Amino acid sequence: HNLTITQGKLFFHYNPKLCLSEIHKMEEVSGTKGRQERNDIALKTNGDQASCENELLKFSYIRTSFDKILLRWEPYWPPDFRDLLGFMLFYKEAPYQNVTEFDGQDACGSNSWTVVDIDPPLRSNDPKSQNHPGWLMRGLKPWTQYAIFVKTLVTFSDERRTYGAKSDIIYVQTDATNPSVPLDPISVSNSSSQIILKWKPPSDPNGNITHYLVFWERQAEDSELFELDYCLKGLKLPSRTWSPPFESEDSQKHNQSEYEDSAGECCSCPKTDSQILKELEESSFRKTFEDYLHNVVFVPRKTSSGTGAEDPRPSRKRRSLGDVGNVTVAVPTVAAFPNTSSTSVPTSPEEHRPFEKVVNKESLVISGLRHFTGYRIELQACNQDTPEERCSVAAYVSARTMPEAKADDIVGPVTHEIFENNVVHLMWQEPKEPNGLIVLYEVSYRRYGDEELHLCVSRKHFALERGCRLRGLSPGNYSVRIRATSLAGNGSWTEPTYFYVTDYLDVPSNIA
């Protein structure tokens, strides 16, 4: 807008934040220059609390790290170098490059900038070799853009010569660093050979998330399962459950009422301010606690030095998902009996873990797994792929695949051998790939016309006998059925096997 004052003059007093240069501009645009008398524009009460600059400061050096910015700028000295009290560095987070010096300023003089007072450097006698002032900004957020400017702080001049310097606002972004852990990993099994893994992005990506790394490792069953005799009275049979499938998407929606109208769909109840505040506090606490764990609990591995020492970490090797089922080394339970199943799973520490690289999504279907087997899954978020990966501390989750139908069934015939004193040795093959492992066998036998009897055969007993022995049988026709019990439950009964026990007292003698 054009402003013209045809008559009258300007009068400025007691404006401590208004620089004289701005008042002189007002004289020019209003056409009143030359009308004012000496005392109409006070030299001592206008701009006496402001830094009124008329020179431009330029930054000469900028260096960044993930949490620091090192700045240096060209030296500046007023005509009387004693008038320079120091520099004021202003900075704040700036997602967009549209910041002005006066953003967030209120009537009390406060604003949204963080201000650092910096002492002037030592003055050199040689004007050509003056030290460049600077400042190291610490405690910054990774991968965050900051708006920065600097200006001088000078003393009051009796001659009211307006001098000083100020830089333009520059924008500097800190470097990326390792992201925080992925949030809320959930693993479920939808079949006997697959596990579905879902997660949420890290709360602090500290860069642009480029991919996720998912490692999985087959877990050995508890050692007590191999040692305890679950045929003993009072000892509860062990059981394991597989990871249940995901709930429906509708039930997972946030901010939804727990109660549904019987007449149909209901609208979600909005969260109160107290609920939102509580969630923010919980989120802040979780982030602080995660940072504490990362800094205190997890110790970084030592990389190899120039002395030739090897990095103890196993090298990563990509495998196809079809090879995942046989990740671990199978060892027989008892070496003397080769027909026992290889369900003991000690994992070799030198073995390469299978892994998958996930790009542009937060889910993965891990296939080719062994049925009813526990897996430990390790999830890392990465925001750099080359020249070397920059990934987060791992988040861990466990899951067990679903049982395989008929995996616990005894394959092959049940054979028998009759000894003296009416002892019958029953023999059968253990299931080759049971659900988890076989903890015991149930032997059901009966003599024709009598009630059915049951015998429990422990895992250890089966390994020693290759089956079991029935003792003290009365003469007669017998039928026997056997079924295995694994961590997933009972298998199917075998087809009945028949044998006849004679009275050993009636056996004919070869003595003449």
Rank of each mutant, 00 (worst) to 15 (best):
I482P: 00
P238A: 07
G306R: 14
P205C: 05
T272W: 05
G491H: 02
H416D: 01
L379R: 00
L379Y: 05
F215V: 13
P387K: 11
L473N: 02
W242S: 14
L232E: 07
V358S: 12
T303I: 06
D250V: 08
G264H: 04
I410T: 03
K432T: 12
N421K: 12
G306Q: 14
D408N: 14
K317E: 13
V414Y: 01
V443Q: 00
T373V: 13
Y441G: 00
T288A: 09
G234A: 06
G207P: 03
S344Y: 08
S492L: 11
V423P: 03
Y498I: 13
D506C: 04
P205W: 03
Q275R: 06
P354G: 12
A381K: 01
S342H: 15
E282A: 10
T343Y: 10
K361E: 10
S305W: 05
V423I: 07
T272V: 10
Q380T: 14
D408S: 03
D450Q: 13
S203T: 11
L235S: 07
D273C: 03
A263K: 02
D409A: 05
V327D: 11
N208G: 11
V297S: 09
E281M: 09
T303E: 09
F462W: 14
G322F: 02
L437D: 14
L473G: 01
V334R: 12
E433W: 13
E378W: 09
G207E: 02
E258S: 10
M402N: 13
N490C: 10
I366W: 01
D229Q: 08
D273P: 15
N339H: 09
A463W: 10
G374L: 10
H294L: 07
T386A: 05
A263L: 11
G368K: 06
D204S: 15
P244C: 08
P338M: 11
S305R: 13
N435F: 00
L225Q: 09
S444V: 15
T502H: 03
L232G: 13
Y445K: 01
S251D: 13
T288Y: 15
A330S: 15
Y396L: 09
T307Q: 07
L237T: 06
T340V: 06
T386H: 08
E433S: 13
L321E: 09
G207T: 02
Y375S: 01
E433Y: 08
T494F: 01
K361M: 10
P349D: 15
R459T: 05
H211D: 00
H461W: 13
K236G: 11
L505M: 04
G368F: 08
E265I: 05
A399F: 06
D229K: 04
E356R: 11
P205K: 00
S458Q: 04
E442L: 10
V414G: 02
C269K: 02
T272Y: 12
S223W: 12
G449W: 05
N206L: 04
K317Y: 09
G472C: 03
V331I: 15
N360G: 06
W216Q: 08
Q384W: 15
V334N: 11
E495A: 09
R471I: 10
S458T: 12
Y500E: 02
A399P: 05
E433I: 14
L369D: 01
P338E: 08
H454A: 04
S315M: 12
F226Y: 09
Y500T: 10
V345S: 11
G374M: 05
V297P: 06
I418E: 12
N490D: 04
K357A: 13
L437K: 07
V397L: 14
N208A: 04
P431M: 01
V296S: 09
V443A: 03
R318D: 14
V439K: 15
P413H: 15
S283V: 05
D204R: 00
V507Y: 05
E265K: 09
A488F: 08
L277H: 11
G436N: 03
E281F: 14
F462L: 05
N255M: 13
Y445W: 13
A399W: 02
H294M: 15
D385R: 05
T288H: 05
D250I: 14
L437P: 05
S243Y: 06
P387A: 13
P245M: 02
P475T: 10
C391L: 01
S257Q: 06
E388C: 14
S474P: 08
S486N: 01
C266P: 03
G449K: 08
K432V: 07
C391T: 03
E281W: 02
S203F: 07
F462H: 13
S203C: 14
Q380M: 09
R319V: 07
E452H: 02
G476F: 00
A335V: 10
F246P: 09
Y212R: 00
S509A: 08
L505D: 08
Q380A: 07
E224M: 15
R301G: 07
S274T: 08
S257M: 06
E452T: 04
I482S: 01
Q380P: 00
V439I: 09
L487M: 11
Y375K: 00
R319D: 03
S251N: 09
W216K: 10
R370I: 14
C456I: 02
N255S: 09
S239N: 08
R481E: 05
D311F: 15
P387Q: 10
L505T: 06
N422F: 04
Y375M: 09
S474L: 08
P431T: 06
S398Y: 13
S348R: 10
K287H: 11
A220G: 13
Y500V: 10
F226T: 08
V457W: 06
E351D: 11
G308E: 08
R301W: 08
I438V: 13
P205L: 13
F419Y: 14
D323Q: 15
V358G: 10
S239M: 12
V214N: 01
S203A: 14
I366E: 00
E279I: 09
R483T: 01
G322Y: 07
T497S: 07
N490R: 14
G325A: 10
L321R: 07
T343E: 06
T333S: 03
Q275D: 08
Y230F: 06
I276M: 07
V296Y: 06
E389W: 09
G472F: 08
E350K: 08
D323W: 14
T347F: 06
E258R: 10
E465R: 04
S268I: 12
P205A: 08
Y478Q: 02
E433F: 15
S367C: 13
V331P: 15
P475L: 05
I209L: 12
G322S: 08
T303V: 06
Q380V: 06
T303K: 12
P270A: 13
R483Y: 02
I276T: 11
S367K: 03
W242Q: 10
